[in-house]
Amino acid sequence: GQTTVQVRVPYRVVGLVVGPKGATIKRIQQQTHTYIVTPSRDKEPVFEVTGMPENVDRAREEIEMHI
């Protein structure tokens, strides 16, 4: 079944991970077949990644490449 993982990043890289108009996070979602919730600016900088476990792992690696 599907799993949801929280990926915490430093505040300063949230914009990098999301990309211009969300382009980068969309690409990560498409490439890894996951659904990613982006943290809002006034909340903790935690991305929520949902999908099959192996896909979630890949998405987390993609996010962490920006750190």
Rank of each mutant, 00 (worst) to 15 (best):
T3D: 07
A59Q: 02
Y11C: 04
H66F: 15
V17T: 06
T34G: 01
V14W: 09
S40D: 15
P20W: 05
K26H: 04
P39H: 08
M65W: 11
R60I: 13
Q30W: 06
T34N: 02
K43H: 14
H33R: 11
P20I: 14
D57R: 14
I67A: 15
Y11K: 15
G51T: 00
M65P: 03
I67D: 06
Y11L: 13
V37N: 08
V9K: 02
I25A: 01
R58G: 04
R27N: 05
Q31L: 12
M65F: 10
E54K: 06
R27G: 05
T50A: 05
M52G: 05
E62S: 08
V56P: 05
V46S: 02
Y11F: 06
R12S: 15
A23H: 10
Q31I: 11
T4P: 01
Q2C: 12
E62L: 15
E44F: 00
T50Q: 05
G51E: 05
R27V: 05
K43N: 12
V5G: 08
Y35W: 12
M65S: 15
I67Y: 15
R58I: 00
M52L: 13
G51H: 02
P10F: 00
P39C: 10
E62Q: 14
R8H: 09
G51Q: 02
Q31M: 14
H66Y: 14
T34P: 01
K21M: 13
I63Y: 03
T24N: 15
R60V: 14
D57E: 15
R58V: 05
V37R: 15
H66N: 06
V18K: 06
V13H: 13
D57M: 15
E54M: 05
R60C: 13
T3R: 07
R58A: 10
E61R: 15
S40H: 09
V37D: 08
T34E: 06
K21T: 05
V7G: 02
V13E: 09
I67C: 12
G51P: 02
D57C: 12
V49W: 00
R60E: 03
Q6T: 10
H66M: 12
P39K: 11
N55G: 10
A23N: 06
G15Y: 03
V5Y: 03
I63K: 11
E61H: 14
I25Y: 07
T34F: 00
T3W: 00
M52C: 11
I28D: 03
D42T: 10
L16N: 09
Q30H: 10
D42F: 11
E48N: 03
G19S: 04
L16G: 06
P10W: 01
V37M: 12
L16V: 09
G15K: 10
R58P: 00
G22N: 04
Y35L: 13
E54P: 10
E61C: 12
V5M: 07
P53L: 05
I25L: 11
T24C: 05
P53G: 06
Y35P: 02
T50N: 02
E54T: 10
A23K: 13
I63F: 00
V14C: 01
Q6H: 12
D57G: 11
V14F: 09
P20G: 03
H33G: 14
G51R: 03
V7K: 07
V17D: 03
D42C: 08
G22H: 02
E54L: 09
V9H: 00
V49T: 04
T4I: 05
P10A: 03
D42S: 09
R41Q: 10
K43S: 15
V18Y: 10
D57Q: 12
T4Q: 04
P10L: 03
K43E: 11
R58W: 06
E54R: 10
E54D: 12
P39Q: 07
T50C: 09
P45M: 07
D42R: 08
I67G: 14
E44N: 10
V13W: 12
E48T: 13
I25K: 02
V17I: 14
V56I: 11
Q6R: 15
T4C: 03
Q6Y: 15
L16T: 12
E44A: 11
E62D: 07
R58H: 03
N55E: 08
P53Q: 11
K21V: 04
E62P: 00
I28W: 00
Y11P: 15
V37I: 12
E61S: 12
V46A: 04
N55F: 03
P53V: 03
P53K: 13
V13D: 14
H33E: 10
N55S: 08
G22E: 08
T24P: 00
R8I: 08
D57P: 04
I28M: 04
T4Y: 03
R12A: 14
I25T: 03
T24M: 02
K21Q: 10
Y11N: 13
I63V: 06
G15Q: 11
V49L: 05
T34V: 02
T3E: 08
F47C: 08
A23F: 01
H33W: 00
P53E: 07
G15V: 00
K43M: 15
Q31P: 04
F47P: 00
Q31W: 00
Y35G: 06
M65A: 15
R58K: 14
D42Q: 12
V56C: 14
V17Y: 06
T32V: 04
Y35M: 13
R8Q: 04
R60W: 06
V5W: 01
V56Q: 07
S40Y: 12
K26N: 07
V13G: 11
Q2M: 14
T34Q: 00
V46H: 05
V9I: 06
Y11R: 15
P39S: 10
G22D: 06
V14P: 03
M65Y: 15
R27T: 08
T24Q: 01
V37W: 01
M52Y: 11
P53A: 12
V13T: 14
P53W: 01
E44W: 03
T4E: 00
K43Q: 13
R27F: 02
Y35A: 13
E64N: 10
Q30K: 13
A23I: 09
V17R: 03
P53F: 07
E48I: 14
T38K: 09
P10M: 01
P20A: 08
K26A: 12
H66D: 05
G19A: 01
P45R: 06
R12G: 15
Q29I: 03
I25F: 00
P10D: 08
E48Y: 10
V46I: 12
P20E: 12
I36V: 07
R41H: 12
Q6L: 13
F47D: 00
Q30E: 13
S40G: 14
D57Y: 09
D42A: 09
P45D: 04
V56M: 07
E54Q: 09
T50F: 05
E64C: 09
I36Q: 02
V18L: 11
Q30C: 02
K26F: 02
E64D: 13
R27I: 01
A59K: 04
D57V: 12
T24S: 03
V9R: 05
A59P: 01
Q31N: 13
F47A: 01
Y35F: 13
K21H: 10
L16M: 15
I36Y: 03
V7W: 00
K43C: 12
I25P: 04
V13R: 10
